[in-house]
Structure formats: structure tokens, C-alpha cells
Amino acid sequence: MTLEIPPLPGIILDPIVRLALAEDLGRAGDLTSDATIPAGTQMRAVIAARKPGVLAGLDVAAHTLRLIDPDVRLTVKRHDGATLTPGDVIAELDGAARSILIAERTMLNFLGRLSGVASLTRQYVDAVAHTKARVVCTRKTTPGHRALEKRAVRCGGGTSHRYGLDDAILIKDNHIAACNGSIADALTRAKAYAGHLRMIEIEVDNLAQLEEALKHGPHAVLLDNMSLAMLRDAVNLTAGRVPLEASGGVTLSSLAAIAETGVDFISSGALTHSAPNLDLGLDVV
């Protein structure tokens, strides 16, 4: 079953889009459109795919257009999460020519970036489809655009690790080091601090650390940069007691083998920090 990914609320989109538009319009607005296009000129244009991929970012693109000119009509032809082939029309725009051209680049910047994230995520998801593993993104996102990029991962079929430092406890190697190297101490402190709805995950580098962690009841364990053999051993040692997440050095070529070890989740920062833009364009028709 394909789930529809709801748009982000305007209160999240608005400051991001306003900043992007202010960056583009500067102090004087669109000099080219003002100089060359008579006021009142109407235009019809389409946004279309030039490369294959997966669509994401329609919510932020639509918000961009609304802020420039709420009277421009946007007719959506493909929805976020849709698979695109070259030439597919994503949306039609009808309205003031100046308004459409002011919004064009900012809309395409958002759509291209976020569709790129969704497209790469879909490749990762397809690579592990024969296993139980789920692909998750991390906090390695573009500053200020985390909500957009994490939604794009969902449009590609992936899911998210924590959104920020404030929604889950993830005890990493440096936290353990700051607790005098004691996994037991770190987990004991975390469990005493967390409420009953707070997730606690701990990162381990080897099987000895995994055994120690399991004694203290984390909700999940992150297996950091382990070999395939170690991942298989970790799955056997854990025997389903807690979910296991593999992380570190994950690539599209290594993904299937990692998933086949039996881990529950595979996290990759590459989904957001290394996704190439999807080539989309706006053309007057």
C-alpha cells in the first residue's frame, strides 16, 4: 500500500520560502521581468521532468508561488512520491507572466533538490526490498531544510531517524567516552532521565560492547561500521530482543549485503547530503 505523504504545514514552510525569495529578489525585485514584460501580461507554463526520478517538494513549490502571487493558478498533474519519466508534466501554471517568472527559479530549486533526495532514497529502498530492512535518513541535512529533506526521504519510500537532538536519546561513542567509557553508566543515566515515551538507542562498535549494552535494556542498538560478518553475529547475539540499526559507510552497492545480514534498519547520511538534483524545467506553452 502506498501512503500519501501530507504536505508540511505553512508555519514550517513560510520562513524557509521567504528567506529563499528574499535571497533571490534582493533589494529591487526581478529587474529583467519588470524591464521586458508589460504589466498585466498573462502566461501559461508547465513544470516537467527532464530526467527520470521521484517527485518531492510540491508543497514548498506551491507555497513559493502563493507568496509571490496567490492569483496564479497551479494545477498539479503528478503528486509527491510519483515516479517520473522525461517529459512528464508535473504541474501547470496559469497567471501573470511576471509572477510566474519571479517564482520560477525558487520553485525549481526546491523541487529539483527534494526530488533528488526522493529519487536516491527510492534507489536505496528498492535495493533492500527483498529483505525486512528499512532505509532511514539521519541529521546530516542542509541547515534550515531538515523538515523538507526528511519529508523528501519519505516521498522516496524511506523513513527517518530522529529529527533532532530533542526527540530521542542516541548515546554515541563520545557520550560513552564522557561517561568514563562506561556503557552501563551511560545507559543507566539515560534511563533515569528519559520519560516513558523517550526512545533510547546506543551506538556500539563491537560485539563485546553489544553484549554489555543488551544487559541494560536499550530500546535499540546502532551497529557502527561493522563488517558483514560482525553484523550477522550481532543479529544472532541479539536474537530479536531489540531492533538493530546498521550505520557507517553505507553505499548503494553495499546496501543489499548489509540488509541480508538481518538488521532491522540501515541509516545513511548520503540520502540527504549527497543526493544529486533531479533535472526539472519550467517552459512556456
Rank of each mutant, 00 (worst) to 15 (best):
D80T: 04
A178L: 13
V242M: 13
T159C: 04
A129C: 11
A177T: 10
P243V: 06
T188R: 15
I102S: 03
I100W: 05
D126Y: 01
I171R: 11
D233G: 06
V136A: 05
L74N: 02
G181S: 13
A103E: 01
E260L: 12
T32E: 06
H175I: 09
L120A: 01
V54L: 06
G269N: 04
I90P: 00
G10P: 01
L278H: 06
A259D: 10
V117M: 01
L271D: 03
F110D: 03
D71W: 03
A178W: 02
L93K: 00
M199Q: 06
D264S: 03
A184M: 12
D279G: 01
D167L: 05
V221C: 05
I16C: 01
R73H: 08
P86A: 13
Q123L: 14
T138K: 09
L21C: 12
L21K: 13
R232H: 15
L282K: 12
L170R: 09
V125A: 09
A194V: 10
I200S: 12
V117F: 00
P70Y: 03
K140Y: 03
V128S: 01
I11D: 15
I12M: 10
L223H: 13
A256Y: 01
A270G: 07
L231T: 00
P276L: 07
G53E: 07
C155D: 07
